[in-house]
Structures are given as structure tokens and as C-alpha cells.
Write a protein that binds this DNA or RNA. Structure first.
Lengths: 166, 166
DNA sequence: CGCTAACACGAAATAATATTGCGTCCCTAT
DNA sequence: ATAGGGACGCAATATTATTTCGTGTTAGCG
């Protein structure tokens, strides 16, 4: 899996599709320098290997009525594996929680939340998150404004790194 | 712009494309219950209106060799607008920084970073981020494991909300 | 009311893409 | 050397995307 070696063309494909997931296969083939059929075969292989997990349209949250974005730092009372799993499952069930990551350090989890307005978030916070079993502390920070929001990984860094190894 | 009213079909289109950005237009049209031509016209309109900002393949960072994900909480010395902007610009130039959000509360910014390994991140942290002009404090938390990572917004919440208003 | 203009739809035709089916080349391991 | 596996690209076919155009519906207006 981690040993799945990708050649430069595969990496270019991934980089291009990360930047524009709806590029046509002919355009993609042109950019990576091979003809369409093998290009499509590579894409399918990358999809099946799980290197491409899916494709998503990036929507404008604010325009859609989601005015509020919040990071929540959550501390639990018990960090037993079963309790961690239970909390993670709750997060997966909460639609306002878009991301949930377990952290090292003082805080156990960081959650990225999205809500139509502050009162919706407040309700969620007090009635669901803070009230949830095993939750010891929640510290929230409202996002004032977004300065950068790039999807995925920096392929340039990857290429530099591979070039150095070679 | 926020007054751009979307009908239920538009919202369904957005929801479908957020979930699967590479769905064919015929499939999309079938799912939203109209024929292909008007469906495509709607998609184009949504793109031009900026409601769809782009499309992205979701890649497996770990498989690609990005083993490390870190959240960094950054405090600045000066919060003057010019200084905030300067810091944001730096973030946009750092490829390891994928997201940068300005927060309320004690911390000024939260950064989501991705790196091939810990030492790469450490170098970035000490040589770039902490060393950057106007940076007063940086607290980092390593992501131990990811529990949820959904793109975009919860359309179910939006629909419930609209139903309630009507 | 009746009329008209604006708008969105869908059927059908056309253009472009995706996908399949080979035959060929290249590399590797015998 | 040479057989086998793998990847390529051309050419043919199947699907999709896109344009064109005629129709129905609705809102505004005389």
C-alpha cells in the first residue's frame, strides 16, 4: 500500500485532479503527456487503489447560508479506547461537525463545525456537544475570516522531496 | 448575491456534486428529476455565480507520503490590519499550510498543516513559522488520527431549516 | 381579462469524451 | 536470445456534453 510506487505521471495526474477534479480525460492526458486511453486506465487504477478517494464540488458555504464556522477543542473525561470511539461516532452523526481529529497534547479532539448562524451553533454546543457523555470541556473559537483554504496536499513539496532523494 | 435564490433543484444539484463531483450530467439530471440540458445549464449558472468554486479530487495524503498533520495555534504581537494581512499572505505562500483561519479569542490564527514527516514539519515550525515576523506564540497539536473529514456543508441541515421557514 | 415577453423545459441533432479492442514496443527474467 | 507481462497508442464504438429550437408556463401590463 505505502509501497505502491507511483511514477511521475501518476503524481501529475493526482495533482491535476486535486486542482481540477472535473477536467476531461483528454485534457488530463494532454497535460500529463500520454494519450487518453492509458491516462484513463491510470485514473481508474488510482481510484481503485484508494489513492483517489472521491471527487467533490467546493461550494460557497456563506452564499448557501452557512454564516458561521467554528473550531471546537474538546477534552474528554476518559481517554479509554472505547470512550474515544464513542465520541468519534457521535461526531460522525452530528451534521454540523464536518471534521473531527484526535490530537495529542492537552486537548483530545478538535472539531471543525459549520452552522447557518450563531444561535444554531450555540444550541448545538450547549444541547449536544457540551452535554454529551464523557465530554469534560469544550473551548470554541469562531472563525472571523478565512485566509487560506487549500484542499489536499502540496504536490510541489512531494516532488521536491523525491527529487532530493533521487 | 446572498439574495440569489436557489430552488430545491439547485440545492439538490449542489448536494449531489458536493458528494460526487464527477457524476455525469445525465446521472445528475436523473437524480434531480429534470432532463440533461437544463440540468447542465443550471450547473453552469451555479459555477458562474460562484456557488460552485471548483472541483477537487480527494487524495489519500498518507498513501502519498504525507504522514503528519498538525494544527498550529498562532498568536501575533500586533493585530493591526496590515500585520494580519502580512501574516495571512505568508501563510498563503507556505505550501505546508493548507488552511489558515483567523479566530476570535486568545489565539489569532489556526493553521492546518500537512507534512511528509515530523522532521519536515519541525523544520518548518522552527525556521519559518515561529521565526516569522510578528509571530508571538505558536502552539502545535499533532493529529493522532482522523475520525471524520467531510467536505463542505451539511445540506440536510439547510433543507430542514428551509422547511421550517416555509 | 387577453396579450406579450421572459424564462425554463425537453426532444432531437451534433460535437466531444469516454471506453473498448487490438496490435506493438519495451523491459525483465529466464 | 527469447518468452511473458505491462503499458502505450491508434482506431472503432458507446456515452456524454452541448447546441438548437419549438413549447408551455407565468408575471406584468394594457
Amino acid at each position: 500500500m505505502a509501497g505502491t510506487r507511483l511514477d511521475p505521471i501518476d503524481r501529475k495526474i493526482l495533482a491535476e485532479l486535486q486542482a481540477d477534479g472535473r477536467m476531461t480525460n483528454v485534457e488530463l492526458a494532454k497535460r500529463v503527456g500520454i494519450s487518453a486511453p492509458p491516462c484513463l486506465r491510470r485514473v481508474r487504477t488510482l481510484e481503485e487503489a484508494g489513492l483517489i478517494r472521491g471527487y467533490h464540488a467546493e461550494v460557497d458555504a456563506r452564499e448557501l447560508g452557512f454564516e458561521v464556522q467554528v473550531f471546537a477543542m474538546v477534552g474528554l473525561q476518559s481517554q479509554a479506547e472505547a470512550d474515544l470511539n464513542a465520541f468519534e461516532k457521535r461526531c460522525r452523526d452530528w451534521p454540523l461537525v464536518r471534521e473531527c481529529h484526535m490530537l495529542n497534547g492537552e486537548v483530545d479532539f478538535i472539531l471543525k463545525c459549520v452552522a447557518p448562524d450563531l444561535s444554531t451553533f450555540q444550541s448545538f454546543l450547549t444541547e449536544q456537544l457540551t452535554a454529551a457523555e464523557n465530554v469534560a470541556s469544550v473551548k470554541t473559537s469562531l472563525v472571523i475570516r478565512g485566509a487560506k483554504d487549500e484542499p489536499g496536499v502540496p504536490f510541489d513539496v512531494l516532488e521536491e522531496r523525491l527529487a532530493r532523494q533521487a
